[in-house]
Amino acid sequence: MVIFVLMPILLIIFYAFTNADGNFTLENVTGLFTEQYRRSAILRSVGMGISATAICLLIGYPVAYILSNRKYNKISVLIILFLVPMWVHFLLRTIATRELLQNFGLLEFSYFAVLFGLVYNFLPFMIFPIYSSLMRMDYSLQEASSDLGATNMQTFTRVIVPMSVPGIMAGTVMVLTPAISTFVISDILSSGRVRLLGDLIFNYFEGRQHNVGAALSLVLFMLVFVSLLLSKEEKTGRGASI
């Protein structure tokens, strides 16, 4: 495990700080900020990732809530229906999305198309963690809250949502990571017009400029690492307050 986890990451760092001849250089890293092309790709990726995650949360939370609520949903296997599309290869799904959008004339709006593709592909990743955290919740807590005089809305905002925060965090990480780093989805849905970080890494890889690719990978890795640390922080902070 040490070999296959640590070594590749160390090598990425090594390559990010060297040029093609193996000499030390900061060029690749500073290039991330000075070169318009790369900087805008990074910003675009982060923006796309965050908006896709927010939309997934907005659409996915009600789905998870309705599915987990006994009042609305008595068929427990219904959740499986949200899982089945995941079993079809994601490239096939993306191609289908492209041609469907094309027929509605929506493929012209590249940003919309990519965002739609991201949300479409990663929505289940948001629904499942929230669903399972809501399912684990003790139903008597809701009853207690309404017995104590809370309105339904108050019960929802004060009891149910705070209890599902771990699910929301897990879902956010699971959507944000692939959405920031996606390559194929943006490539297929915008025919290369919306360039994200993943596309750039892939292009530099194809062009045999591994050092620049490594520097970009390092940025992605740092982004994800920070979000991972933040989610850890959240957990320990909550633990301390209890």
Binding site: F4, P8, L11, T177, G198, F202, S217, L220
Partner: peptide, 26 residues
């Protein structure tokens, strides 16, 4: 070990792919 494991789970696939490629070549 759990943290290392977690890194690999959330690590974007591009980064894993790139890292492995460099690892194999070097």
């Amino acid at each position: 070990m759990l943290f290392g494991n977690q890194i690999n789970v959330v690590n974007p696939e591009v980064v894993t792919a790139m890292g492995l490629f460099l690892f194999f070549t070097v």
